[in-house]
Design a protein around this nucleic acid. Structure first.
Lengths: 133, 133
DNA sequence: TGCCACACGTTATAGCATAACGCAATTGAT
DNA sequence: ATCAATTGCGTTATGCTATAACGTGTGGCA
């Protein structure tokens, strides 16, 4: 994967997500970046669109929020299907890349001649820390 | 699973979903039911809440829409994790219950001591019919 | 120079979901 | 029988999420 030269807005949004300890909604990002000149949702959504395209950010469909990708991007490393665990208490998100899941889903899709474009796997519950409390 | 005695509103919403050939958004359901006295979104959302609880309806997180469950509910049949294929062209949705996926996700969660509450698996792409066209 | 592609800023609007209030019907214990 | 608790319902208002449509500026390049 080539390095992507990010624009100022894209860097600001990525930074906001990278430094957050939980997923952020687009509007939360907007609020965090008002001091940097952000005024409108589109500024956030346009940056997110590119960051998603570059694989630097993930969208969590089940909670309408975004997280910075946990993987390195300084080498050619395309990862396939990613599953997420999302703690409903603390917001902690972990990424799981598992070939068993990936191959099985691929098989199931093929079986019904379905052409997969994008797969979402999100596991909501309670992380080790919060479940113990 | 016991039979659930549905209220009038719940029946209307379930009927609307059952007769649709694609997932419906809450507001689309509202429009379909205006002739039956529906006036406000909450009437739909409240019915959906119960139907989801009873397992008669599924929510598709990635498209903010709802479908009637494809399985029978006249016997004790609790199904576990369900994956959905969603055609982005025609809206066709199929439900996949697969023990390999289920067990693997369970294993992965256990491995990190994560307590799962709800799992979402949604595969978006093109169904056999639409992919051929 | 003229064109094109792209990022950006702004205003407005569309689409999805819930809070908060009050009323009516049902149930079930006293 | 009656009171309290629960549940469903209707309504108004509001909040959250996302995109349409328009115009500006800039950099690359034929």
């Amino acid at each position: 994967m080539a390095d992507h030269q990010l624009t100022r807005n894209q860097n600001l949004v990525l930074d906001a997500l990278s430094h957050a300890d939980a997923p952020l909604s687009a509007y939360t990002i907007l609020d965090k970046l008002r001091d940097h000149g952000f005024r409108a949702p589109l500024q956030v959504y346009r940056a997110l669109e590119k960051l998603l395209e570059f694989g630097l950010v993930h969208r969590l469909e089940s909670i309408n929020a975004f997280v910075a990708c946990a993987h390195r991007h300084d080498h050619a490393h395309e990862h396939g299907v990613t599953a997420f665990t999302i703690c409903e208490d603390c917001g902690n998100v972990t990424e799981l890349c598992d070939s068993v899941i990936e191959e099985r889903l691929s098989f199931l899709a093929t079986q019904q001649k379905f052409k997969t474009e994008k797969t979402t796997i999100e596991i909501r519950g309670h992380c080790q820390t919060c479940a113990a409390a």
